[in-house]
């Protein structure tokens, strides 16, 4: 248990450090201006709005939509290649360790109040929603839904993304009077979405990551194939259920260690009393039936 506690502290520290590093342009929070230096040509690995006054890098989901919604749409090869490299190397590890919005939701979930258990069937359907957001709002709508001038928009950023509102919308409007005057229905809509998700995070762990995040959906596609894998040694596993009980993403690691829902937080590895779970880059492992397999 002490091991698990230490692991949780380390993970929180890494998540916080990532958030601070990605948003290290502190002067932006005073001047109300965003960073415009060369670092912004690099995408960050997690959800982090590039219109946050502190942001030093570009948001991969926003960048992808920028290419697709352009008057002459282009395949976002740089962003897709970058995200695919991360995905194939470590799967959803980014979600568990390097996403600032994931940390915000986790901290809200710590508020001691009765938690909601989403019925399994409802949860299963809702989890598919993030793929809809990825394929419809991030890819199809920016590509095909255009106005009379053949212009399109980053529809996910515009209508859904609560990260842009939290990191960009609130601080920028707080610091710029002209922007405050320009805020209308869209601002109220996005603000309402943010508040809804933050409130939901108090009673459901990481609702945005489970049901909405298109970046998590993308990385999740790689969990089955990634070099970093969660493995269960069936010979020593006693099927006690400790791993499933501790998993806040409702994955059952001893049955589906590489589920697309696993954010590789590693808590199950620390919680396993038989030390049957491991997370590493080794290609040899034992499958759930106990035979040695090579992946």
């Amino acid at each position: 248990m002490a091991d698990l506690k230490k692991h949780r502290i380390i993970r929180k520290l890494v998540q916080t450090a990532t958030g601070v590093l990605q948003n290290g342009n502190l002067s932006g929070f005073i001047s109300g201006k965003i960073y415009q230096g060369p670092l912004k040509k690099f995408c960050v690995p997690g959800m982090n709005c590039y219109s946050c006054p502190g942001a030093l890098g570009a948001c991969p989901i926003g960048s992808m939509q920028a290419f697709l919604s352009a008057r002459r749409p282009k395949a976002p090869l740089y962003v897709l290649g970058y995200l695919s490299i991360i995905g194939i190397l470590i799967g959803r590890f980014i979600c568990g360790w390097l996403c600032i919005f994931g940390l915000v939701q986790e901290l809200l979930y710590k508020i001691p109040i009765k938690k909601i258990t989403v019925p399994e069937k409802v949860d299963k359907v809702l989890r598919k929603l993030k793929y809809v957001f990825l394929f419809v709002f991030v890819i199809l709508l920016p590509l095909f839904l255009r106005d009379e001038f053949k212009m399109s928009y980053p529809y996910f950023c515009k209508w859904i993304c609560p990260v842009g509102m939290l990191e960009g919308g609130i601080p920028l409007l707080a610091l710029n009077e002209a922007m405050r005057e320009a805020a209308q229905f869209l601002y109220a809509w996005k603000f309402a979405i943010l508040i809804f998700i933050l409130l939901l995070s108090v009673v459901i762990n990481r609702p945005f990551c489970k049901y909405i995040c298109p970046l998590g959906a993308f990385y999740g596609l790689f969990n089955r194939f990634s070099f970093l894998k969660l493995k269960c040694n069936a010979e020593s596993c006693t099927s006690c259920g400790a791993c499933a009980k501790i998993c806040k993403m409702q994955v059952d690691p001893h049955k589906t260690p590489n589920s697309a829902e696993c954010i590789r937080c590693g808590e199950c590895v620390k919680a396993c009393p038989a030390k049957s779970l491991s997370m590493n880059f080794k290609s040899k492992s034992q499958d759930v039936n106990g035979s040695l397999t090579q992946e």
């Binding site: 912004k40 040509k41 948001c59 740089y78 919308g169």
Partner: peptide, 24 residues
Amino acid sequence: GITNGEMAAVLRKAVTICMECIGI
């Protein structure tokens, strides 16, 4: 993507405030 100059395109997008992202 890099050889096609896409990093520069990402930079152009990222250095201007994204009005859609902030709800304006």
